[in-house]
Design a protein around this nucleic acid. Structure first.
Length: 270
DNA sequence: AAATTCTCCTGAAGGC
DNA sequence: TGCCTTCAGGAGAATT
C-alpha cells in the first residue's frame, strides 16, 4: 500500500534511469485504471525530453517539455525499471519507454492512475486541494492545531485527510499515533497544542525512518529493481493485533475507524 | 461546512 | 477440492 515513503522510494529509484533521457513512447495494455489513460498519450510524449522526476503528495510527476505525466500507485501499484523486451505479466498495464529502458507500472487492483497535464501543475484539479507536505517547513503543530478547531472526527481520520496533510496513509497514521501516545479515535478538537507538537514530530520521524528503510512491503510494493522495503520489520502496531505492546506488554487492539482498520495500544494511547 | 458512505478492482484468506 | 463470502485500501465523488 504505497504511502509517501513508498512513493518517495520509487521516485528516488527511477529518477536516475529517466532524467535527461529521450521519451521513446508509451505502451498502454490496460487503459482502465482509476481513470482512463489518455489514448493519445503515445503521440503526445514521443520525442520529448524527460527532465525531472518530482513528487507531490503521493503523485509522481514526470516533467517533460510540454507538460507532466502524472502517476499514482493507488494501493497496489509498483514501478520497475526493466529492459524494454521484458515479457509483461498480467497486471503490467503501462510502459513508459525512456532512453534504453522501460518504466513499467504493475497494478493488480488498478486503483492507480496515469494522466497527462499540459497546464501549470498548481492548477491541476488533483493537486490544488492538497495540504502541506509532512516533511516540509509549513507542516507545523500550530497549523494542525488551528485546522483541528471545531473538528470532531477521529484524529486518525483527520491526519489521513490529504487536505490537512498529504502522504499519511493507513499504516503510518497508526504508527504515528502510537508513537505520540494519542488514541486514534480521539476527536481532533480535543487534542492540545502540546500534543500536536508531539504528533507532528512523530509523523515526521516515522516517515523519515520509513524512507531510510526503503518503505514498507506488505503485499505488492517493491522497488524499481524488484527488492522489498524493510520498514515492515519496524512496524510497532500496524498488523500487530494480539502481539504485545513494545511499551507496556498489553496486547495491541484492532478496530475499524472511518472504514479503515486501525491498530493501537489501549493503555499507552489516550 | 463537516462527516460519512460509496465506488473503482483483484487476490488472499476463511468458512463450509 | 471448490465455491462462496469477507476483507484489504487511496481518495475523489456522492450523499447525509
Amino acid at each position: 500500500m504505497p504511502e509517501l515513503p513508498e512513493v518517495e522510494t520509487s521516485r528516488r529509484g527511477i529518477a536516475p534511469h529517466l532524467e535527461g533521457k529521450n521519451v521513446k513512447g508509451a505502451i498502454i495494455r490496460q487503459p482502465r485504471l482509476r481513470w482512463s489513460i489518455p489514448s493519445d498519450l503515445n503521440d503526445i510524449i514521443s520525442g520529448q525530453t524527460l527532465h525531472r522526476v518530482k513528487r507531490r503528495a503521493k503523485y509522481l510527476l514526470l516533467e517533460m517539455d510540454s507538460g507532466h505525466l502524472i502517476m499514482h500507485l493507488g494501493m497496489s501499484g509498483s514501478l520497475r525499471i526493466l529492459p524494454p523486451e521484458t515479457t509483461p505479466g498480467p497486471h503490467d498495464h503501462f510502459d513508459l519507454l525512456v532512453g534504453d529502458c522501460c518504466l513499467r507500472l504493475c497494478d493488480p487492483r488498478r486503483f492507480g492512475a496515469v494522466l497527462w497535464s499540459d497546464q501549470p501543475l498548481d492548477q491541476h484539479p488533483l493537486l490544488t486541494q492538497l495540504g502541506p507536505e509532512p516533511l516540509g517547513d509549513t507542516f507545523t503543530a500550530e497549523y494542525l492545531f488551528g485546522c483541528s478547531r471545531g473538528r470532531r472526527l477521529a484524529i486518525k481520520s483527520f491526519i489521513m485527510n490529504s487536505k490537512m496533510v498529504v502522504g499519511v496513509g493507513n499504516i503510518y497514521a497508526s504508527e504515528s499515533l502510537f508513537l505520540a501516545g494519542i488514541h486514534p479515535q480521539r476527536a481532533a478538537q480535543r487534542i492540545s497544542l502540546a500534543r500536536y507538537k508531539k504528533l507532528v514530530t512523530c509523523i515526521q520521524d516515522v516517515l523519515s525512518r520509513a524512507i531510510q528503510q526503503g518503505g514498507t512491503t506488505l503485499r505488492d510494493f517493491q522497488h524499481e529493481d524488484g527488492k522489498p522495503g524493510y520498514f515492515t520489520q519496524e512496524l510497532l502496531v500496524y498488523g500487530q493485533e494480539g502481539k504485545l505492546c513494545t511499551q507496556c506488554n498489553n496486547p495491541i487492539t484492532q478496530r475499524r475507524i472511518g472504514q479503515r482498520s486501525s491498530f493501537y495500544c489501549k493503555k499507552c494511547q489516550r
